[in-house]
Simulated assay, not measured.
Amino acid sequence: MIELDRAGRTFKVKRNVVHAVTDLSFTVAEGEFVGYLGPNGAGKSTTIKMLCGILTPTSGKVRVAGLDPSRRRTTLARRIGVVFGQRTTLWWDLPLADSFQLIRHLYKVDRKEFAARLAELTETLGLDAFIRTPVRQLSLGQRMRGDLAAALLHAPDVLVLDEPTIGLDVVGKAGIRDFLRRLNAERGTTVLLTTHDLGDIERLCRRVMLIDHGRLAFDGTLDDLMATAPGQSSIEEVVTRLYTGSSMP
């Protein structure tokens, strides 16, 4: 807050300390597919940035794949994959295939392993039709498939997804959801998903966590979540009721 006197000569700055997350504690087991929900400003992005080592918590401990993200960020990068729906990790002016080659060198992936993994991802994500196209010319759905492939080329143990289906049409969403479902079921990849699209949660997640004003407000199965609001017919209605009510459970 800034205050200015009538003569315009002096001002005072008042600082307000805001805790993005407070007393937040949870564990995600190997092979789980967990949805992490909350309204804008609830602390989801801050949580993800701490898990990835971008931010360091002022207190408490964070462990991802057994590593402290803020102290072992480079090592952790080889164990996790991250996809931000509103940002891309691909090189804008390069063909998708060239971006993948650069990623191979960044992660020091063995050439034969990379070739086999890329062939598999190209087939399952349907990349073949546009893999030689510059990223800037890709549709949103194509770019999202490219970002998913890029995040998985080094075979991470943990995949963190932030709005992976944002802006996609029905067909695009269905394709991404099917791929993620099979990735978790067949490869055992641990997935943490944040999204405002509750259809993603209903179709993919067995467990849901809700964060509200930086605090964990709910942690349980979808059935447990539905039980918090008897009479509501959809997860959207339940979550809306919880966040617009006077308090969280």
Rank of each mutant, 00 (worst) to 15 (best):
I2F: 13
L4S: 09
A7D: 15
R9D: 12
R15Y: 14
H19P: 02
H19G: 05
A20C: 11
V21H: 03
V21Y: 03
F26H: 13
T27S: 14
V28N: 05
F33G: 01
F33C: 06
A42L: 01
T47A: 05
T47G: 05
T47L: 06
K49A: 15
M50W: 02
M50K: 02
L51Y: 06
G53F: 05
P57W: 12
S59A: 15
R63S: 15
V64C: 04
D68V: 12
R73K: 12
T75S: 11
G85P: 09
G85W: 01
G85M: 05
R87V: 14
T88D: 08
W92Q: 12
D93E: 15
D93K: 13
D93A: 09
L94E: 12
A97F: 10
S99H: 11
F100V: 10
Q101G: 07
R104A: 10
L106C: 12
K108D: 08
K108M: 11
T122Q: 11
E123Y: 10
L127Y: 08
D128P: 06
P134C: 09
V135H: 05
R136S: 12
L138E: 08
L138M: 12
L140N: 04
Q142W: 09
M144R: 06
R145P: 02
R145V: 04
D147G: 09
D147R: 07
L148I: 07
L148K: 02
A149T: 15
A150C: 11
L152F: 05
L152A: 10
H154F: 07
A155L: 13
D157P: 04
D157C: 06
E163W: 00
P164Q: 06
T165E: 01
G167D: 02
D169K: 04
G172L: 07
G172A: 11
G172W: 07
K173R: 10
A174R: 13
G175W: 07
G175S: 10
I176C: 03
R177V: 03
R182K: 14
A185E: 12
A185Q: 15
E186D: 15
G188K: 11
V191H: 04
T195W: 03
H196F: 00
G199C: 02
D200A: 03
D200N: 04
R203Y: 05
C205I: 01
R207N: 07
H213Q: 12
R215K: 14
F218N: 00
D219Y: 09
D224M: 07
L225A: 00
A229K: 00
P230N: 04
G231A: 06
G231P: 04
G231S: 07
S233E: 11
S233W: 00
E237W: 01
V238C: 01
T240E: 01
T244D: 00
G245C: 06
S246L: 00
